[in-house]
Simulated assay, not measured.
Amino acid sequence: MKKSMQNKVGIVTGAGNGIGRASAIAFSEAGAKVIVSDISEDAGYETVKIIQEQGGEAHFVKCNVAKEEEVKNLINETLETFGKLDWAHNNAGIGAPTGSVTEIDTERWRRVIDVTLTGTFLCLKHEIPAMLESGGGAIVNTASTGGLVGTPGLTPYISAKHGVNGLTKSARIRIW
Score class of each variant (00 low, 15 high):
residue 129 P to A: 02
residue 69 E to D: 15
residue 155 T to N: 09
residue 46 E to F: 06
residue 12 V to L: 06
residue 163 G to I: 02
residue 128 I to Q: 00
residue 59 H to L: 13
residue 76 N to L: 09
residue 54 Q to F: 07
residue 5 M to C: 10
residue 115 V to I: 14
residue 104 I to W: 06
residue 5 M to Y: 09
residue 43 A to F: 10
residue 160 A to D: 00
residue 111 R to L: 12
residue 110 R to I: 10
residue 138 A to Q: 11
residue 56 G to T: 05
residue 96 A to S: 15
residue 101 V to R: 03
residue 169 K to C: 15
residue 11 I to E: 01
residue 118 T to M: 11
residue 159 S to E: 06
residue 95 G to W: 11
residue 144 S to I: 06
residue 13 T to W: 05
residue 75 I to Y: 05
residue 9 V to G: 00
residue 70 E to F: 04
residue 70 E to M: 08
residue 162 H to T: 14
residue 136 G to P: 08
residue 79 L to I: 14
residue 54 Q to S: 11
residue 35 I to G: 01
residue 80 E to S: 15
residue 155 T to G: 14
residue 1 M to V: 13
residue 48 V to T: 06
residue 23 S to G: 13
residue 24 A to T: 03
residue 51 I to D: 02
residue 14 G to K: 04
residue 110 R to Q: 15
residue 63 C to W: 07
residue 59 H to G: 02
residue 133 E to P: 10
residue 82 F to V: 11
residue 173 I to L: 15
residue 126 H to L: 02
residue 167 L to W: 08
residue 36 V to H: 11
residue 102 T to Y: 05
residue 7 N to H: 08
residue 156 P to Q: 07
residue 88 A to L: 08
residue 61 V to P: 03
residue 94 I to E: 08
residue 63 C to N: 05
residue 35 I to E: 13
residue 83 G to K: 02
residue 38 D to V: 02
